[in-house]
Structure formats: structure tokens, C-alpha cells
């Protein structure tokens, strides 16, 4: 009963905000901004622990994996473009991923973030299952990393389109790179909103960023410790 309630609550809030976002195009109505806020307020108001909410909502999370697999469809459709611009894409993602890791490390040091947190924040820009693996290697806490990853996704969805406009980024390749390299899955959802081409580029960037971070993580470990 509770399971069904939280399941339908999440789905209905999602579709309402999606509708409102479609009508107004205001970023605060974006489903990943408003829906978690409303649900968090609801849980706090009625003093419901996250674990009982998750009894229902875990069925939604379960679809994230097949949804990621389904990103193969835009990838397949835009393969000719991706192939053509592959060098450009991989070069941008490489620079982006390396600076993402370095900046998180540097800023954590500068702000004197407590060391567990400082390690856990390093893979903030890569898709959460892989971020959690990376953080295991470098000595952080995977569940905290998952929180940073989702925060980055939400943030990236909000600020990404703003930067696209500010810096007058025109090509779908660059839009996809900008969103996918930093904001992984959530950024890819945003990129798909801009266009299927940008979405396909973004999913490639998400994968590349994850692979790059995964490959360098053993080396990273000696660098940090």
C-alpha cells in the first residue's frame, strides 16, 4: 500500500512538473529540480524516513539502468556524426574530465574540506555507478559520492543551458560535450531536450568521462595520498 502510494506520488509529481515545465519553460519547474524538493518537503512534513519512501521509489530507480541502455538508440541513429567528430569529442572530454578531477581535488584542499568528503567529491562529474567504483579505489564513501553526483547533475542541468547561451555555443557537438562531460545522465536528459543529436553526443561524453576517470583512478590514488 505504502509502496504503491510513494510510487504514484513520485510519478504524478514528475508528470505535473514536466507539464508545467513544458508550458512555462522555467528551469525551476524542471522535473529534477522541483519534484525532489516537493517530495523532500513532504517527507519532512509527515516525518517519513527515506527508507520507507524508497520502498516504493526503488522501482523507479530500477528503470534507470534500462534507460541508460536505451541511450544506445540515439547513439545508433547519430553514429555517422559521432564517428566524424570523434576526435574532437574525445579531446574535449579528456581535457574536461582531467580538469574536473583536478579542480575538485584542488578546491577541496583550498576550502579545507574534511578528508573523507574531499576524497568522495573527486569523481563528482561521472555517472554514479562508476563514480562509486572510483571512489572505492581512492578512499572515499560511495554513498556520499552518489549524493555529490546527483547534485552535480541537477546543478549542471540548471547552469549548462545558461553557459550555452552566454558563450554562444552553436554546434550540437559542443552542447552535448558541455552537458555530458560534467552533468552525466541528467545533463544528457537536458541535451536530449535541446535535440537528439546533442543528446547522442552527451551520452558518448558521459561514457568517455567515466572510462577516462576509471582508467586514471589508480594513478590518481598515488597523486592524492
Amino acid at each position: 500500500m505504502k509502496t504503491l502510494f510513494f510510487l504514484s506520488l513520485t510519478i504524478s509529481i514528475y508528470f505535473i512538473s514536466k507539464w508545467a515545465y513544458g508550458k512555462t519553460n522555467k528551469i525551476y519547474f524542471s522535473p529534477l529540480v522541483i519534484a525532489p524538493l516537493v517530495i523532500i518537503m513532504f517527507l519532512i512534513l509527515f516525518n517519513i524516513p527515506y527508507s520507507s519512501y524508497n520502498e516504493g521509489s526503488k522501482w523507479i530507480t530500477a528503470l534507470l539502468q534500462p534507460a541508460t541502455v536505451a541511450l544506445a538508440i540515439p547513439l545508433y541513429r547519430f553514429y555517422p556524426i559521432l564517428k566524424k567528430y570523434f576526435v574532437e569529442i574525445i579531446l574535449s572530454v579528456l581535457i574536461g574530465s582531467l580538469s574536473a578531477i583536478y579542480l575538485a581535488y584542488l578546491l577541496g584542499k583550498l576550502l579545507k574540506l574534511e578528508s573523507t568528503l574531499a576524497h568522495s567529491i573527486i569523481p563528482y562529474s561521472i555517472t554514479s555507478p562508476i563514480a562509486m567504483d572510483v571512489v572505492n579505489l581512492i578512499g572515499g564513501v560511495p554513498t556520499i559520492t552518489a549524493v555529490f553526483v546527483i547534485m552535480t547533475g541537477v546543478l549542471g542541468m540548471i547552469i549548462g543551458p545558461y553557459y550555452i547561451q552566454l558563450f554562444q555555443i552553436k554546434s550540437d557537438i559542443a552542447k552535448g560535450v558541455l552537458l555530458g562531460t560534467t552533468a552525466h545522465g541528467a545533463g544528457t536528459a537536458k541535451a536530449l531536450e535541446i535535440g537528439t543529436g546533442a543528446g547522442a553526443v552527451s551520452s558518448v561524453c558521459m561514457i568517455l568521462a567515466a572510462i577516462i576517470s576509471f582508467i586514471i583512478s589508480p594513478w590518481l590514488m598515488s597523486f592524492i595520498l
Binding site: K84, Y85, E88, I89, L91, S92, V93, I95, G96, S99, A100, L103, A104, L107, G108, L111, L113, L117, I121, Y124, S125, F148, M151, T152, L155, G156, I159, G160, Y163, I164, F167, I169, K170, S171, I173, A174, K175, G176, V177, L178, L179, T181, T182, A183
Partner: peptide, 28 residues
């Protein structure tokens, strides 16, 4: 602190990778 780190570093990464990709792609 977390917000400052995430906001600053993702901004820099987004702008750099985006502009780099834009330059490379338009050149091609």
C-alpha cells in the same frame, strides 16, 4: 563548501570543454 566546489569546478569544466568542442567542431 560542497556547493562552492561543485559549482566552481563544474562551471569551469563546462565552459572549457564546451568552448573547446565548439572551436574544434566549427573548424572541421
Amino acid at each position: 563548501k560542497i556547493l562552492i566546489i561543485l559549482l566552481t569546478s563544474s562551471s569551469i569544466v563546462m565552459i572549457c570543454s564546451g568552448l573547446l568542442a565548439e572551436k574544434l567542431a566549427t573548424r572541421k
